[in-house]
Nucleic acid binder design. Structure first.
Lengths: 334, 334
DNA sequence: GACACTGATTAAAACGTAACAATCACAGAT
DNA sequence: ATCTGTGATTGTTACGTTTTAATCAGTGTC
């Protein structure tokens, strides 16, 4: 219980608390001999800096917040891996918040970030409401959008072109000669879902077809469980589409499971393509065609921008980066 | 930039800072009318409590640390979901640290936890070294072991019986009449890997066979990539085993992929069983038999114990909880 | 021997909050 | 009119660190 403070270290080493603080934060300012002495005492006493006291006095912490929509989705864990790698290289700690797609949970996470006085926040926003983010910025907290393009120029953002991705997916399905195509999607409030749909419609239009004929099955979540329910919905209808475009791989995995259980053969009866190209996509019953995104890079680059904004606020120039997705063809569309 | 503090709120509401603090922490101590007034001012000014100042003064924070071995493994994200759900129900925030199986990263995460003065730590330890955990306890930080039994009685721990699980898996394989069985495992330093092996050997012994005949392929990581490499190793050997027991499902997924690519049929040529029963296990090319663990519960119960130790330190009694695993049979062992 | 200069160290003042003892206002009892 | 008790509020102190200005001890110069 007896916390050892910077004063205890100072007393034991025969220096002032200020010197110990210098050893910790500006080692070059203190003479080699005293530095060594202080460092041994720190080790002897097992001193650990009180982060809160430090943050309070310094006015800022060495942590960043990361808010993701679904920690159970490998897409986001890959992003998180990229964030954490770069952050810890730069000596920052990451506080991870999972909103599970719920607005209130996201709000609560942002509140925690604000209370902890994180240096910056990386967020995959679950809606288009910018006011909460502006609130953070007003508090001097840098905000970078992840997997979301910026509609304004006064912020950094890193995204992947989802319209292009949607077009790629449906172009690929159309090339297979499929007639009726359905789009299996999550909440239509999600920009990702909207954009991928727009891309899909664009592909139809480019092929000289009516974008309106794209059937849609919308689910409240983008999980495997939701995908399976979508399959049941589809099977209950009279006529099955020829090809399915799922808004992410989890939906596709669940859809695949549901279809097979319903006796539908993939790709013989129905073709199927997902989105994200998560690691498991190549391991499913029928391996999944998908749209690959540079996921890890997404997290890493976003963090790069965030830390630049934090550490060089004067020279920092906001950037909006847009990656391009890739088509990965596997069995489910052969 | 201009941070609004408790004093600003107090001035605007015409009360003392102490009263504002009371509104925040012991609302029942303050008269209804003043409470309402203060609360409106808080909203008007957009005041957010300075968590660091609060922690510094109060001597403890409202956060717990969670250190997992591999955030890319669905097993751990399920555990994390359980932890986060209960923690946020109780008003605690979770700081998630991913050690990626590296001892130094785990150490670094624990240091961050100590600096942040978290109230408690939940950890899936990556080795048997208790000194670092005792160090935390010495600082007044509660520690609960997750997915790891306690060898001492002075701590809480929540685990699943891995020896039983290993026995179940190999019992099941033996019941299929398989002759030569191999154990595909991660680092042998991991208790999980050891215990599951012991369980496997026990099953062999109980069947009147020599436990020594269990072949072993040990990989440095427990990922799908490692599983695929293990498959290549196995295929390079002259004779393939009849059945494979993989120490977790990620290894099994990779193994499955590797075997199929090598032209080996599952389960016709080789039977395969994994461990954890992650969500994807039922969606793989050949659906995976596995050993199911109460993963979400593991995280939830561990957090329950941790918060009890934090909030009721005097009445708290340390508990060691051991869950039992279940066998799930699917195609890969039919 | 006084001087300025340099590099190393220190003393002291914050940072925003929680907690405790002290004060206050006021009603009811004597 | 005084006292007591109660509930509401306030003043003050301390938490552990960082930071700035001030002090100190040398070293070399004129």
């Amino acid at each position: 219980m007896s916390m050892v403070s910077i004063k205890d270290v100072a007393a034991r080493a025969g220096v002032s608390p200020g010197t110990v603080s210098n050893v910790l934060n500006r080692p070059e300012k203190v003479a080699g001999s005293t530095r060594d002495r202080v460092e041994t005492v720190i080790r002897e006493l097992g001193f650990v800096r009180h982060g809160s006291a430090s943050t309070l006095r310094a006015g800022h912490s060495r942590t960043v917040g990361l808010s993701v929509m679904d920690i159970g989705n490998p897409f986001f864990t890959d992003v998180a891996a990229g964030v954490e790698d770069l952050a810890s290289e730069r000596g920052y700690a990451v506080i991870l918040g999972n909103s599970s797609g719920s607005r209130v949970k996201e709000e609560r996470n942002l509140l925690v970030f604000a209370e902890q006085r994180v240096r910056g926040v990386l967020i995959t926003p679950s809606d288009e409401d910018q006011t909460r983010l502006d609130m953070l910025r007003g508090r001097g907290i840098a905000v970078v959008l992840v997997d979301h393009p910026a509609e304004r120029a006064d912020q950094c953002a890193v995204a992947v072109n989802d319209v292009t991705g949607g077009t790629m997916a449906v172009d690929h399905l159309l090339a297979g000669g499929f007639d009726s195509i359905a789009y299996i999607t999550g909440p239509s409030s999600l920009r990702q879902c909207q954009d991928r749909r727009r891309g899909a419609e664009r592909a139809l239009a480019a092929a000289g077809r009516d974008p309106q004929e794209l059937r849609e099955v919308s689910m409240p979540a983008m999980t495997a469980a939701a995908g399976q329910q979508a399959a049941e919905k589809l099977l209950a209808q009279d006529r099955l589409p020829d090809a399915l475009f799922c808004a992410n791989d989890l939906l596709a995995v669940g859809m695949l499971r549901g279809l097979l259980q319903g006796g539908v053969r993939v790709p013989d009866d129905v073709s199927l393509i997902g989105y994200d190209d998560i690691d498991f996509a190549s391991a499913t019953t029928v391996s999944l065609s998908s749209i690959r995104q540079p996921t890890y890079q997404l997290g890493r680059v976003a963090t790069e921008l965030l830390l630049d904004e934090c550490d060089n606020p004067d020279t920092h120039a906001h950037q909006q980066i847009m990656f391009q997705p890739d088509l990965v063809v596997r069995e489910s569309t052969r």
